[in-house]
Design a binder for these strands. Sequence first.
DNA 1: CTCTCACGTAACTTTATAAGTTTCATGAGA
DNA 2: TCTCATGAAACTTATAAAGTTACGTGAGAG
Lengths: 153, 153
Amino acid sequence: MRFDTRLSGMLHVLLHMVESGKPVTSEAMAGYLGTNAVVVRRTMAGLRDAGLVRSEKGHGGGWVVARAPSDVSLGDVYSALGSPTLFAIGNRNENPNCLVEKAVNASLGETLREAEALVVARLHNISLADVADTVGGGMEEFKRVMSKGFKDV
Amino acid sequence: MRFDTRLSGMLHVLLHMVESGKPVTSEAMAGYLGTNAVVVRRTMAGLRDAGLVRSEKGHGGGWVVARAPSDVSLGDVYSALGSPTLFAIGNRNENPNCLVEKAVNASLGETLREAEALVVARLHNISLADVADTVGGGMEEFKRVMSKGFKDV
DNA sequence: CTCTCACGTAACTTTATAAGTTTCATGAGA
DNA sequence: TCTCATGAAACTTATAAAGTTACGTGAGAG
């Protein structure tokens, strides 16, 4: 299975967008991620539909965060991506006739559901602002923007 | 990504092996799983190397569980499979230069590590015997074998 | 008005990996 | 010695994220 890095990637560019304070183009974000602008647009489309970001066409256009960073949780971003499958493992057959397999599914399924609930709860409890606060090193401009509060550009 | 069902599949056949009380062929297990005997052998190889099962060639051969079902945890089986990747999501780049990406990795990584630890702990806390106890419906032979304790065939 | 910038989207290719398949070798017992 | 069963190499298939190509649309700049 190739491993889904959309959440990781989108969080990365969202923080750069907050840092920038002005519209960031798909091309620039593709640069941050070492990927293609089309991949960025495709993935950002979910966040736009969820109201987390807005996009503007033309000169000076690009993407901006549509809410205060303290009001966007990692869980919001995860949901906006369509709540992609969290686990790489799982039950072979979700509706087996075999009683033994049903027992295995129940046991394994319960464990995974618990872990999923934990992850989703944690993600909803961390905001972009929280992550921004943990960015180390001389990011003065970043801290300036954050300390002044978010301006809805 | 195609989703890893080896743990689920192996637990299923292990319980059938316990139920049977005699060697079960790869062919029979492939029947339980709706798959191919070679897939079963390939996957069971890890459990054999970990000492959880033994295999015998020739007439009357097949696979047997090498320990008491109460002494084999789901975590043991997971480890024997090589502790396959648990999550379908993760960080894009584990060793970024970008400070923003480092902050994202730390935040997301911590959440996933916590959930992974929870899953592994839970799996180590459930034995094959525990799962067997939850098998519902008229599995008299199964219960008989379990109540008599495990015979090292 | 038109040129350029930037997003929107469809359609296709690439990549990684579990799963599945084919084939042959080896060893155990009837 | 014939059959059964595992062992293992080598190959194909399936799937979904990621990557690419190509073209359309709307918004400023000049």
